[in-house]
Nucleic acid binder design. Structure first.
Lengths: 217, 217
DNA sequence: TATTTATGATAGTATTACTATCATGTACAA
DNA sequence: TTGTACATGATAGTAATACTATCATAAATA
């Protein structure tokens, strides 16, 4: 994990893990705009100053959580696809993993991956849609996201080595899985899945979109 | 324009138009997070209370500006495509219009469309990525965006009446034009256009993506 | 045992996000 | 022409947010 994202490593102490655990719950419940360090401190039973010893501000905490998620997710990909040879099957698996509501991973008791996935859908893009994005990118704040993008782009190139836009297609897959999910549940008129509201529909849409583009002619 | 978005119609007074004009400039310059009614009031030479007579809060102002933009943009589409018969050419024109940096429209001296387009790219999704999205959608805050989506979905169906995901493809086009643009300029490793940095590249990517999906087999 | 370190407790500041009140000038209606 | 409604300006004030600083204490460590 990028050390510039925190003042004190939250994974090395009980209070730190409490901050991570409850920030996920509180951002999920209140939304990022409604989330404050004061409320977080109250939930945990510590003080605002206690939180500030770990994170400079709530923006850095959000970037930390997204970095954590994408690191975890890249591991999920390698775990679930390492024995799949066919890149087409592998890419389909990636799309499915992106779209599927994950189950809480018991290994990391202090992070609820299901809730974090929901946060990434609704708040994830706010981590980089800022005026400081260029500076923060230089500090490698978004490396896990870029690494994941590179992994997916490579699978895309395995499917079709002549495809011209592997990285842009990779980000399109990631962002569109999330946006279609958000729209389906919150602004259903913007999707074709408003009535059914099943992730399988989003997966079908993206498979159609992606593999029509990668088809060799 | 949806009356629930403002307390007093900003287009009906000089102060109102000043608020619109300078809010576009200030959000462009400071980003939405760095934008406050106090700074806005100082720029205009009025007081905070003056702004609050027009808009309840800065979130509503952002929603207003996005609604204004999408309304204006839908008119641009009909203006630039009304004499085009071929739906494929029309859809290409829509993608090009979405991707191209617009020129400032002289008809509306109080809104700089070029700056507003840049705001939509970087801040537009924050208008709906909130906890209140469901309530605000009921109040029709996002109608112009949904109308535009419907217009594009209809062109898509004209291209291929059997295509199963017209609305999701429409939102994918809109969001991806903007995200690829933002990535190209701010997180270039996430795209295939980082070196060239030309909108024409984004247009090519989207044309490839869209028309491979709409091809009848 | 001495010392570093993390936390808790408390206090305080600047800024943000509002709300309220009153005076003034202008427009328009009687 | 007078009266009145209304938009704005000016000022003040509150609650919450986003921090920073200081000190005491307890646990870890050297």
């Amino acid at each position: 994990m990028n050390e510039a994202l925190f003042l004190r490593n939250p994974e090395n102490s009980e209070l730190g893990k409490n901050i991570l655990q409850h920030s996920v719950q509180l951002i999920y419940k209140a939304g990022f705009e409604g989330f404050t360090f004061k409320k977080l401190a109250e939930e945990i039973g510590t003080t605002e100053a206690g939180i500030y010893r770990y994170f400079e501000n709530k923006h850095k905490l959000l970037v930390y959580l997204t970095a954590w998620y994408w690191g975890w997710f890249e591991f999920q990909i390698s775990f679930h696809t390492n024995n799949i040879k066919d890149p087409i099957v592998r890419l389909k698996k990636v799309i499915k993993l992106l779209a599927t509501a994950v189950e809480d991973d018991e290994d990391t008791h202090y992070i609820n991956e299901y809730l974090l996935h929901q946060i990434i859908i609704a708040e994830g893009s706010k981590a980089y849609l800022t005026k400081q994005v260029w500076e923060e990118n230089k500090l490698q704040f978004f490396k896990p996201y870029k690494d994941l993008c590179a992994v997916i782009a490579n699978i895309i190139l395995e499917c079709n080595p002549k495809y011209k836009y592997p990285k842009s297609l990779a980000t399109t897959i990631i962002e569109m899985v999330h946006f279609q999910n958000f729209f389906m549940n919150n602004l259903p008129a913007l999707t074709d899945f408003g009535k059914i509201k099943e992730n399988i529909e989003i997966i079908s849409f993206l498979n159609d979109l992606v593999f029509n583009s990668l088809k060799k002619i």
